[in-house]
Design a protein around this nucleic acid. Structure first.
Lengths: 346, 346
DNA sequence: GACAGATAGGTGAACGTTCACACCGGGCGG
DNA sequence: CCGCCCGGTGTGAACGTTCACCTATCTGTC
């Protein structure tokens, strides 16, 4: 087995270049206070030894952090996955490193447990606060190191403005728009197949999908049917939605995300109900596959990647006060009408 | 803004417990050579101060690594994502931390660039080597620190046995099985919509999907049509597959993954060809949605999560010689016949 | 021609751990 | 009763950086 020859340190470079370790450090960090000739000598030594700064030592010594830890409960969901991608890209561009830590939804993490995930106290952290474990982690971090954390979740513009450590989109508003669209199409009411909520009970935050849906129905004076709770998986959704698709009175279903919508389409098909003839189905998120189902899914587009990027920028601002607070600038959620929605048949 | 009160260190605990810092270290690391009474005192001090070991310092000091870095090019693909989940779970169980670094497929990373991703020299690393950037990273790491890296990719049993740093499944074999199944159904030949290959040219490794497909056709003495290259996205696949679905001679298409298969189904539908009546479509990976499309997709199940777990175990073995080499024990790829495949019509 | 001020560079400590080794006391074999 | 070994503990250095502070040397000014 090849012997792992020890990596060159700042001292090795210093010796070879005939300068002090501190000068090497200055060169590496691009300090202006070093003579051109010296800089060249050092750079040459760096190249020769193949020196690479050690991130661990750098952050131990109290240098700039240049690392983020992302706490999330489920990387297989499209939203968190896309947000993570956004964070990664933004971080990469600045040469920050990204660490992820997956919270087990089954496990009940103690506060200490959550803190132990972080590589060090004060580690800049982004939390995907869309479900219970995420909310829990958010609370813990908020207590421990509010200055070095940012949470992503569904929040109204007011909530976002009030809490300087929040980033997200108003899912409730988007759901409202989708519901209104279905009512305008002539549906008597709209049913809802709901994703699990962050609080464990339906009707948590104002910006939740179920909340926006219910609000529009109430405002329009329509019946507000009991939302049908589903788990995150397609299989769970398929099971949960059975009674809904079997009921001929149900003519429109707003689904908590595109996976649930796919399950609904499948269940409807098996129940012999045609889409959009007998039943309109609307999804959420505009997951990549949604434009290619048959029929193609009407859904709400969400730019999670931009939200992730925004979260990263906000975190930088919070960790390092000298960076101006970024203005959230991602596109609003937008309804994309495709083939699964239409006027009721009768 | 709340003042980040400095975290307790091993020295603070030592002072409070009235012992040396080394004794605290021993207690924290569960060394047997410490008296019960002392241990209790230390534990108490730890609890009182809310002390948490600093991972960075630990690894800097040359302690056990307890961290893995995963290099991947695309977290949105099902395979890498599932493997990452497997790695995360396995790592979490042992209290290791996981760091991910996304290689930009567009960017041509220099060797130094790739090395710079690692938090320190010798960092244990797992590489998703299913595409070009991954292969490149694999080569670099193999040169730099073969003892602390493992690569995941499609390899035959022989290749896996020959290279002790490889983990993966024989995609070629699985593709062969799927192709044979379609031939047995009575199709004259089988076409192939191919994922990008790791080498940039089709027909790279023996274990590649396209390779297994072609082998079976040759062995059966059938025509081997030119494989149709597609990108990773559904949209690209949709475009690439147009000529194939438009051709009435084409009765069976093996797709490089389930997303490509979905695009194929959509294109076929729009071209007025019924599935499986006019055209059989088989996917790859058994992505969660595949059982819920209409018609439900016939595909090849792959247990990527187990492969990820296996990669982690192998990495531990390689980094720490005292850990026995794990025996790869994940299920073989398995064809799951659903509704998109059947005998040719005429 | 002495002096402030900038410019280039060096020195030592600190960050929070682990590692290698030295030390101390007591039980046990000779 | 001496010496040896071993369990239990302390000491100091090392890991690879950055930070705070100090010291030369050069420039230009009055």
């Amino acid at each position: 087995m090849a012997q792992p020859k020890k990596a060159a340190s700042i001292w090795d470079v210093a010796r070879l270049a005939g300068v002090s370790h501190q000068t090497v450090s200055r060169v590496v960090n691009g300090s202006p206070r070093v003579a051109a000739a010296t800089r060249d000598k050092v750079l040459e030594a760096i190249a020769e030894l193949g020196y690479r700064p050690n991130r661990l030592a750098r952050s131990l010594a109290g240098g700039a952090a240049e690392s983020v830890t992302v706490l999330t409960a489920d990387t297989s969901l499209y939203g968190p996955e896309a947000a993570l991608r956004g964070i990664e890209k933004a971080a990469r561009a600045l040469d920050w490193s990204v660490q992820i830590s997956v919270l087990d939804p089954a496990d009940t993490h103690s506060d200490a447990d959550i803190i132990a995930r972080l590589p060090r106290a004060g580690e800049p952290t982004i939390i995907m606060a869309h479900d219970e474990p995420g909310m829990r982690a958010k609370q813990v971090l908020l207590d421990q190191q509010p200055h070095a954390m940012v949470a992503i979740g569904p929040y109204t513009a007011e909530e976002l403005a009030a809490s300087p450590w929040l980033v997200g989109m108003d899912d409730g508003k988007a759901a409202a728009e989708a519901t209104r669209y279905l009512l305008d199409l002539g549906h008597e009411t709209v049913h809802h197949l709901a994703i699990p909520t962050s609080t464990g009970t339906f009707g948590g935050g104002k910006a939740h999908r179920a909340e926006g849906w219910a609000r529009v129905l109430r405002e329009a004076g329509r019946a507000v049917p009991e939302p049908v709770p589903s788990g995150w998986t397609i299989a769970e959704a398929f099971k949960a939605v059975q009674p809904l698709v079997a009921d001929p009175e149900v003519t429109a279903i707003l689904c908590g995300n595109d996976h649930l919508a796919l399950a609904t389409m499948r269940a409807a098909h098996l129940a012999g109900r045609s889409i959009p003839g007998d039943l309109s189905v609307v999804g959420f998120d505009n997951t990549p596959f949604s434009g290619f189902t048959t029929p193609a899914l009407t859904t709400v587009n969400q730019d999670f990647e931009s939200v992730g990027r925004g979260a990263f920028e906000l975190l930088r601002h919070r960790v390092d006060g000298s960076i101006p607070r970024p203005v959230p600038g991602w596109p609003e959620p937008e309804l994309i009408v495709r083939e699964t929605s239409g006027p009721p048949s009768s």
